[in-house]
Amino acid sequence: MFDLLGITPQALYSQLLIGLINGSFYAVLSLGLAVIFGLLNIINFSHGAQYMMGAFIAWLGLTQFGNWIGSPGMQINYWLALLLAPLLVGALGVVIERTMLARLYKLDHLYGLLLTFGIALIIEGLFRYAYGVSGQQYEIPEVFQGAIDLGFMYLPKYRAWVIVASLTVCLGTWFVIERTKLGSYLRAGTENPRLVQAFGVNVPLMITLTYGFGVGLAAFAGVLAAPIFTVSPLMGADLIIVVFAVVVIGGMGSILGSIVTGLGLGLIEGLTKVFYSEASAVVIFVIMVIVLLLRPAGLFGRER
């Protein structure tokens, strides 16, 4: 069969794996966007910059932190970064929400988009000024060096970990939102925040924490990405356009939709690379156009 199609099985499997990896990042990032859009009605254009900050925090922690505190041997290792980066970026998100976004909720979506786009440009500009555009390497943590022999292909351990970690985070988030009391506040708050507040739930606080959580997810993805992609100020800007296409295809605000669409589109992109690599950069946008024409609310979205 592989001979007929003119491809090798190795090429197919490795592209599918790359597709699955990219899909994992699309899923985590679009999930964060979906959670934020659902409750805040804000299209968070600074998501890519927050993802980039996550990767940078990991890199700075590993290579620069020791010099800053005057003992070069000290490092913030990968595991600590995986915890610390989402917390720091989430805390910065809380500040952004309280001081800026909170003033925009009564206005059109467009204002939130413009504000977060501006924030993204500022953050990316600052990092570019400090660290240049050439990009930094982040070493794969020792436990994940090497590969597992699956018989039909070699699976690099770190890539397997990225897929497992992303899926765990996605499913965990889905479970909290769809199956817990806290999640029922979030779902109800998405429909009618004023009434949920009239029942005695502190909705403004819930909105602030949701934004913090959403951008924390972006930073988590950034740390996961650091050992795979080059850590550069523009890494988020490149990715975020594709992620927005994923969100549009899945449907704005749909939790499960963003996870399934993210993974699915990563795989489709990988397959396109095998069969017609010239189209791989545009295939997601072609799908987006088709979906928008046939189902404007997205595959999993509801008209609102």
Binding site: K181, S184, R187, T190, E191, N192, L195, F199
Partner: peptide, 16 residues
């Protein structure tokens, strides 16, 4: 103000 995305029982249990 019944929430469409919640079941009847989730609606009932929603207000703290």
């Amino acid at each position: 103000g019944i929430f469409a995305s919640l079941s009847a029982e989730e609606n009932l249990l929603l207000p703290p």
